[in-house]
Amino acid sequence: MTVRPMVNRDSQFFWDGTRAGELRIQRCNACGARRFPPGPACQSCDAYDRGYDVAAGTGTVFSYVVHRHPPVPGKELPIVIALIDLDEGVRMVGEVVDVSDEEIEIGMPLRVDFNRIDDELTLPVWRRAEEMP
């Protein structure tokens, strides 16, 4: 069983995006500032008017962990989880699904992929950048 995200009006666009195969990053319609995680008020200019960019889906590892214990719902352990600096200048947490605990390192380039859980939920996951077609 996968842990499902709590979603509200401010974050719905992100999860609509993953379902559509897009990694969406909130962008302020007034000043253009990007942010992640999303929220209702621009941290740069205070505006509420906001849209999103579709990220290129590339980034590098800022930090990472290898989770071995205790159990994580819906996961077969160990799993590699990274904090990823996206090329658009925001940072997010994601599971790295095809890099072993021996190989993962800070600075490694990654590319996003999408793991469809069911009709409602698709999770972004990350793979080694050079192995993508």
Binding site: P5, M6, S11, H67, I79, I81, V93, G94, E95
Partner: peptide, 9 residues
């Protein structure tokens, strides 16, 4: 927590 827990963290 939506940005971490579903990802396994």
């Amino acid at each position: 927590n939506a940005w971490t827990y579903p990802m396994g963290l």
